[in-house]
Design a binder for these strands. Structure first.
Lengths: 244, 244
DNA sequence: CGACTGGTTGAGTATGGTCAACTTCGGTGG
DNA sequence: CCACCGAAGTTGACCATACTCAACCAGTCG
């Protein structure tokens, strides 16, 4: 048993899922953590790599420890779409009603995920109210976020979508701290596939935001927000000034 | 107590949520149903009507009994978007993390909903595993469906989106039965706002599907599927034949 | 019958897609 | 340390899909 405890320690000692109070593993008793740990597989996934399918077959519950994972669909003629993004703490339940397709998980940044054993996960959500609360809250957030994202894709212009994307990135950085610098996290083609655009349009869109003095690009992956209020307005779909 | 039981009987006797085995109230014991019933408000909502906001403030859990409810967002300049559709059996949990916006619920067909008391709902999902299973399954479905919908909005052409919409309607009609006739359920402008199009484009899109002999329009709200396989292909984003 | 709502059709336009060339960046190896 | 390579990103010219706006048509209701 000490041996088992040691094994957990190695796997989970520094894991964000356990250390961050708001995340799933932080809700568990030592005993529960030991049990889950023994059936879980933390894995690093390189950017552009698919999350190991064999792992998922037996353990279709994935928790994101670090990085960004995308749910990728590829249409028959090659069009690629990132249906949703998952960030630290998100839990992905890949079980689907029946023969439904469902897309594949791809790391869009270097990422670390932990694949959880279904039985143990189900048992924990059944028996531990705190775990359950975290899981259900996370699902609710995913549903709400998906709604917001549908509005972006359905009715917003390219600059508006990018403004919304900037805030999405911002929200997942700096635990609530104010900061004008935002890391774009994904590369252009992934942003494009996520926001329903082409890479070229993403490029032009950021340029346009810069021209309007809302942001300033800092290298390929960072930018500074210059006018947060106006950027927010734009992200929310307000009539945009075509300032001189 | 007999009195109370009688009250339930009136409210819930013929309610789909109780009669259909797969839905939430069918999972409850008589006692639980009585308790929930006494804090619940079944309401009819006319097409185009918003679900009563005062009701939702105190009871932000809505279960759809009949009809189609849309989650509607209106941008400042009037653009309207239907972020998601809810059909019989769907459960909407409107609780949002903090000051988030969230959209409003609008009936897109004549509908019947039941607003559930939060405390009772939370208690039931805590204590009754069958209720919990239904609730969690429904959330999972909503998440998966939202992903599919994002793919539609992000990367598909107008005819492809409409094909996908036809199958979405089909899925919610006739409990699994094969049938070539599909009810479009919503009017053109609502389909447009849901699929990220304009009403004119919806009209032209259906015409195009008809021209390709995939469907046949029967009045404003019904159509017959003539080539299900091809329509499915198209909905899934396969390269479409521009048949002569 | 006329007014109204919802739907369709047509003409012109604009936003974003496509394709190709070019630039920048980051890493690797001489 | 620099030269080189390949991947990612940007720019430009052109084009297509879907949007806009307006007129028109088809039911429905008073």
């Amino acid at each position: 048993m000490d041996k088992a405890a040691l094994v957990i320690a190695e796997k989970c000692r520094n894991c964000a899922l356990r250390i961050d109070d708001a995340l799933i593993c932080a809700q568990m008793s030592p005993g529960e953590l030991i049990e889950l740990s023994s059936h879980s597989f933390p894995t690093n996934v390189d950017r552009k790599q698919q999350v190991n399918a064999r792992l998922l077959d037996r353990n279709p519950i994935i928790a994101i420890v670090e990085g960004v994972i995308g749910l990728q669909y590829v249409l028959k003629d090659g069009r690629r779409s990132i249906a949703s993004l998952f960030w630290r703490g998100d839990i992905i339940d890949l079980r689907r009603p029946d023969g439904h397709d469902g897309g594949v998980l791809v790391a869009l940044t270097p990422a670390r995920v932990c694949s959880l054993n279904v039985e143990t996960y189900d048992k924990l959500t059944r028996e531990n109210p705190d775990v359950r609360a975290v899981v259900i809250d996370n699902m609710r957030e995913q549903i709400h976020h998906a709604s917001d994202h549908s509005v972006d894709l359905g009715k917003k212009s390219a600059p508006e979508r990018l403004a919304a994307y900037i805030f999405e990135c911002r929200r997942h950085q700096l635990g609530g701290k104010e900061c004008r610098t935002v890391d774009l996290a994904l590369q252009r083609s992934d942003i494009a596939d996520y926001m329903g655009l082409q890479p070229e349009t993403v490029s032009r869109g950021f340029k346009e935001l810069e021209r309007r003095k809302l942001i300033e690009l800092k290298g390929r992956s960072k930018l500074i927000i210059h006018d947060k209020a106006a950027l927010r307005q734009l992200a929310n779909g307000s009539p945009q000034e075509t300032s001189a």
